[in-house]
Amino acid sequence: NNDALSPAIRRLLAEHNLDASAIKGTGVGGRLTREDVEKWLAKA
């Protein structure tokens, strides 16, 4: 759900042209964290 994304995470996803639904969030309530996105980028 994009409503649950912080502005910083939205920007990070946009910079790398990523789809938030492709990344499993580990934050509160399954929210994406910066670490989630960075780990996903490291694997890609």
Rank of each mutant, 00 (worst) to 15 (best):
Thr33Trp: 01
Leu41Cys: 04
Ala20Pro: 14
Asn2Lys: 11
Arg11Met: 08
Thr26Gly: 03
Glu38Val: 13
Pro7Leu: 14
Arg11Phe: 09
Gly27Thr: 02
Leu18Pro: 02
Asp36Ser: 00
Pro7Gln: 12
Val37Glu: 00
Glu15Arg: 15
Lys43Gly: 10
Arg10Gly: 03
Ser6Phe: 05
Leu41Val: 07
Asp3Leu: 08
Ala44Phe: 15
Glu35Gln: 12
Lys43Met: 14
Ala8Tyr: 14
Ala44Leu: 15
Ala22Thr: 11
Asn17Pro: 02
Arg11Trp: 13
Asp19Ala: 06
Lys24Pro: 14
Leu32His: 01
Ala42Trp: 13
Ala14Glu: 11
Leu5Lys: 02
Asp19Gly: 05
Lys24His: 10
Asp36Ile: 01
Thr26Phe: 04
Ala44Cys: 07
Glu35Lys: 10
Lys43Asp: 10
Lys24Glu: 11
Leu41Asp: 00
Asp19Ser: 09
Gly27Lys: 01
Glu35Phe: 10
Trp40Leu: 11
Leu18Glu: 03
Ala20Trp: 10
Arg34Val: 15
Ala44Val: 14
Gly29Ser: 07
Lys43Pro: 04
Asp19Ile: 09
Ala20Thr: 06
Leu41Gln: 01
Leu18Gln: 05
Gly27Asn: 02
Thr26Asp: 02
Ala22Ser: 12
Gly30Glu: 03
Asn2Ser: 13
Arg31Leu: 11
Lys39Ala: 14
Ala42Glu: 11
Asn2Val: 13
Ile9Phe: 06
Asn17Val: 04
Ser6His: 09
Arg10Trp: 05
Leu5Tyr: 05
Ala4Asn: 12
Pro7Phe: 05
Leu13Gln: 00
Leu18Val: 13
Leu41Arg: 01
Ser21Phe: 10
Leu18Ser: 04
Gly25Tyr: 01
Ile23Gly: 01
Ala4Glu: 14
Ala14Leu: 11
Asp3Thr: 10
Glu38Ile: 15
Leu12Val: 05
Gly29Ile: 03
Ala4Tyr: 15
Asn1Ile: 13
His16Gly: 02
Ala42Asp: 09
Gly29Asp: 11
Asp3Tyr: 02
Gly30Asn: 06
Arg34Leu: 15
Ile23Phe: 05
Arg11Glu: 09
Pro7Ser: 09
Asn2Asp: 14
Thr26Val: 03
Ala20Met: 08
